[in-house]
Design a protein around this nucleic acid. Structure first.
Lengths: 247, 247
DNA sequence: CGACAGATTGACTTGATTCAAAAAGTGTGG
DNA sequence: CCACACTTTTTGAATCAAGTCAATCTGTCG
């Protein structure tokens, strides 16, 4: 009982924060349906650094992230790494149509997840028909995000990439129209390392670090330690991210 | 009548060629259901260069591509372009969950499509329940492709990018395990321009052209005009694409 | 307080871009 | 069928943004 309840609560809390997005299970499962959901899932916790999904491994389960964050990446044989996304509260992971996982998922700090066997999906969907629409919507919104990531990696400069990253982190739940106020400073936690940011943006750590330095000098951000940034000029950063010149 | 029939035929023909993939409408709609499908769709033809989906425009319709190919891209305000994919026979286009299209689609050569109003999806899916699974599978296989594109754009060298592109073009329907024979030369049509290839791979035309030149000198490919390539060493190219060194 | 991993900064190198020019296609009309 | 005009592609030389290598610096944690 505790298991399912906490999932719902966690996700509901998140939905409260982010009214612009509502892609989570809480929206498609009524309270009286909880026991069925609980029966199908088990709650799992992983410590920081643990890989709980392995690229290429048989895809037995899928997960809903209910606490913490995770990085998702693929590797090349020589160790080059591309982070394909960061997962956060409410995200679905491992819902592949193929037999194996397409990426590795590693806990960024401790994470809690609800695990469902793939075989349970059909039953779940049958029981909660609205879940299907949700899954479709999740997939198609992920596709849109992927397209903007392709633009980041294929065509943007280092500054634009980092600006895109910061803006994206500033509005994790609600897409692009999210920056609260163009002029209001906004402080973000950055649970990922510089190496992670570099592997997400297709840059090196050094370039990421230097670009942070430039932004700081230019008064666009201020940095506390390495894992907290304040956006002092969100509007400027947003324009930079989108390749819009301000004169 | 002709409309629906030709869609099915076109798609069926393709499925014959590519047994590894079966993501098209023909697999989920029985022949006796045809009239209902025909009633919901209209056939449209666009000449080369015509943009039939506009990024940012209200998403009224979705399409199934039944002839020719199309390039899908997004633009930055200063004109930088990222091609996010090439669509071919049987692909679904414009199935967004948001109110607007996320990319522009332009005909590469003449293109024929079946157009469905978005409002018809629910009815179609209700009528052909298996279609829903297909759509989900399509979306999730597209997501996997996107992830490998992120690796291409974020971490691969120019040579590896072009090799990835050629290998991908060589096996458009069946993913990675498709190269017929590692040692058997394979001739491909390349309906897209060098500029398109560059914008797909996050490179400039010059770099693409130079890299084609290198591959030619090294005996990996031979080129007829600008729109036909023969892969002389598919295995070597495939390894290069995946960052595997041969000694 | 050390010690160590992670982050920053600096100097130099390089792969890819940019700018420029030549070559090869492609299509049109006589 | 060829000549002309135009576009696309290829090739060359110079430049530059980001990468590499190397040396500090900083923060964290036992």
């Amino acid at each position: 009982m505790e298991t399912g309840r906490s999932l719902i609560d966690a996700v509901r809390e998140r939905c409260g924060r982010c009214s612009g997005r509502s892609l989570s299970i809480c929206n498609v499962i009524d309270d009286q349906d909880l026991p069925a959901l609980v029966a199908a899932s088990s709650r799992v916790v992983f410590p920081s650094g643990r890989c709980f999904i392995q690229e290429g491994a048989p895809a037995h389960d899928f997960y809903v992230l209910t606490g913490g964050r995770a990085k998702l990446f693929t590797l090349m044989p020589d160790g080059r790494r591309q982070i394909v996304g960061f997962a956060e509260l409410g995200d679905f992971l491992g819902l592949t149509s193929s037999e194996t996982y397409a990426f590795t998922a590693e806990a960024l700090g401790d994470v809690t997840l609800c695990r469902f066997p793939h075989s349970a999906i059909d039953r779940l969907v049958e029981r909660f028909p609205r879940l299907r629409g949700r899954l479709q919507k999740e997939a198609s919104s992920e596709l849109v995000k992927m397209q903007s990531r392709l633009m980041v990696l294929g065509r943007k400069t280092a500054r634009e990439r980092l600006a895109s990253f910061l803006v994206e982190q500033a509005s994790p739940c609600c897409g692009h129209h999210a920056l609260h106020d163009e002029r209001e400073p906004l402080t973000l936690p950055l649970p990922m390392s510089r190496t992670d940011i570099a592997d997400y943006l297709g840059l090196t750590i050094e370039t990421v670090s230097r670009t942070f330095g430039l932004f700081r000098k230019e008064g666009l951000i201020s940095v506390k330690g390495a894992s907290s940034v304040t956006l002092l000029e969100p509007g400027v950063l947003s324009d930079m991210a989108n390749g819009i010149k301000r004169d």
